[in-house]
Amino acid sequence: MFAYEFMRTAFVAAFLAAFVCGPVGWFLVLRGQSFASHALSHVGFAGAGAALLWGQPALLGFGLSAVVSGMGMGMASDRVIGRDVMIGLVLSLAMGTGALCLHFLTRSAGAATALLFGDILGISPSSLYWLGALAIGCVVCLGVMSRPLLFASLQPDVAEAKGVNLRLLDVLFLALVGIATAMCSQITGVLLVFTLMVAPAAASLRLGFGPMLGMAVAFALALFEAWGGLCLSWLSDCPASFWIALLGSAVFAAANLVAHLRGR
């Protein structure tokens, strides 16, 4: 299967997506913001559709709209309005805009399907440079902010008292979630971002690893899902996103079983 360039490209793209989704997803689950990635992927869908209409790359439109929306979510004060209400409103607006874009994209139904369900085998080798730069930038930023982010996630009141800027961290982190969502959507599609972003991280947390090891395990599990999905897709001729979703559920179920057996 590695004789084909599109397969080699797919494996590298899957590695880069897992590299970002593992640690970002770990914080996302820890902070109870899993739904944010789902919402941002829908916002990104609208952005990608709009970009295609303007003849721009879908990844560019997806990334920009997801990052801007993530920062907007972070800036919205949860003391004024419930975070879940805000995310729900953004999601509804994005779905409506996405529907509008789909209406105009009927000449290219394949593009819409690729956005919704992913098209990992269609990623061009030149896209890997973009994905690689985004992955490195995203993980470096997360690494720099991970200590105060962990503190703020677990104990917001104490962190604020110790001088941690909660709002700044919220905005920066959700911007990173936007980038990670854009990368992940290239692999799994908009509708299945949850499987690569949340399932490995939730399994890692369920197993009780500490922050550093937990993020590493989340990356390893995401990589297992992504590469496993590609291999199974090759063998079965079924979509990779289906296998990734199936492996994500299996990994989480297995982690729950292990945690239960260990008395956690």
Partner: peptide
């Protein structure tokens, strides 16, 4: 789902970047 130890440790130098 983090252990208590990690929750306590998060506060130590928690405002420093890194």
């Amino acid at each position: 789902q983090l252990n208590g130890w990690h929750m306590v440790a998060a506060a130590l130098q928690g405002r420093a970047w890194g």
